[in-house]
Nucleic acid binder design. Structure first.
Lengths: 107, 107
DNA sequence: GCCTTATACCTAGTATAGCTAGGTATGGAA
DNA sequence: TTCCATACCTAGCTATACTAGGTATAAGGC
């Protein structure tokens, strides 16, 4: 389980530039050194959801001698959402770090 | 949403010693400086689930002139599970940090 | 004495996120 | 020509956390 931070990860994957679904999955896998090997059934619906929400836009492209791809890009709202998600992640992870702490909490 | 890390947090809250549900909620709230103000409907079922799973054990106590409380303690399996969860969290948060990175990824 | 607040527990039902497991189809390699 | 990698899709399941309700006692204000 990606625990609610999937959207942030997908949005971040598109920050460097437009990409299609399959490539996004590969990138996330590579960049996380296999920690996030996301099934397609996780990512594709997420992309649809994010597009529905206006955070992404997509266009079908067919590279010469290749299969058709749906290429997604961040919208303005998407960039803003990403910035927000980053803040949320920061606060969240900081809090969990504190709670899990290195050792037992002082009384 | 606590996104799947609730168990780790609750287990960690009991690492310093036994406590009852209400106190656990307060402790988590305080230690996270209000980031995690967990509703009872989240924590109590989690405690039951963890006890069911053998990670916690509980006993009813009635302090003199007080309400009855159900006090939970970590079992051995619970300590082991906590250690495991910490590792999972470490890998998870590290990967998300990398993916969200400070700036756009290099090509 | 009465009311509110804090303490302390509980659970039925709901929302939804992410995954499983299936399907379709093409291009290139063996 | 068979298989794998690429590339997309979705129906349905499950588990998680939350909402929203309920019960009950102790302490403090008025």
């Amino acid at each position: 389980m990606l625990k609610g931070h999937l959207d942030a990860i997908v949005l971040a994957a598109l920050e460097a530039g437009p990409a299609h679904g399959y490539a996004i999955i590969e990138t996330i896998k590579k960049r996380s050194t296999n920690t996030f090997d996301l099934p397609e059934g996780t990512v594709y619906p997420a992309l649809h959801r994010l597009e529905q929400a206006g955070l992404l836009s997509s266009t079908w492209t067919t590279p010469p001698g290749g299969r058709r791809r749906r290429v997604y890009s961040l919208t303005k709202a998407g960039s803003a959402a990403l910035a927000d998600r980053r803040k949320v992640w920061g606060r969240f992870s900081q809090a969990v770090d504190t709670l899990l702490g290195g050792r037992a909490w002082p009384a």
